[in-house]
């Protein structure tokens, strides 16, 4: 059973290799994407309901549900985790993705105020 850091690394690797939503062009968009998509993914992994009544939420949910499905399929250790553990893990993942894509990013365009 990998420790939380290894798990985060595995989850991060999947996002990096397979997803595009984390690389929107501006810092605020990346934060928003990370928050909503990873937040929803956490809920889905815990079997909680998510609200998709608004188009933007439905779009987050599309990426989140894809992520949740793939996580469950690829990382069998998820099945041994409690919801609290999953939430803790996903929070750590969110912080990591925020760091890699925004706070620690070397991309100098993230702060450009215009699109």
């Amino acid at each position: 059973m990998p420790d939380i850091n290894e798990k985060v690394a595995q989850l991060e690797n999947f996002i990096m290799k397979k997803c595009l939503w984390q690389f929107h062009s501006r810092a605020w968009d990346r934060k928003r994407q990370n928050e909503n998509i990873l937040g929803m993914t956490a809920k889905l992994l815990c079997g909680e309901e998510v609200d998709t009544s608004k188009p933007e939420d439905k779009c987050y949910w599309v990426d989140a549900s894809y992520l949740a499905e793939n996580y469950r399929e690829r990382f069998d250790w998820f099945s041994t985790m409690s919801n609290d553990e999953i939430k803790e893990l996903m929070q750590a993942l969110r912080e990591r993705i925020d760091f890699v894509t925004v706070d620690g990013s070397l991309n100098e365009e993230l702060k450009d105020p215009r699109y």
Partner: peptide, 10 residues
């Protein structure tokens, strides 16, 4: 741009 390199390197 750097964003493309982020995606490509990732």
């Amino acid at each position: 741009h750097q964003g493309d390199m982020e995606k490509g390197i990732a």
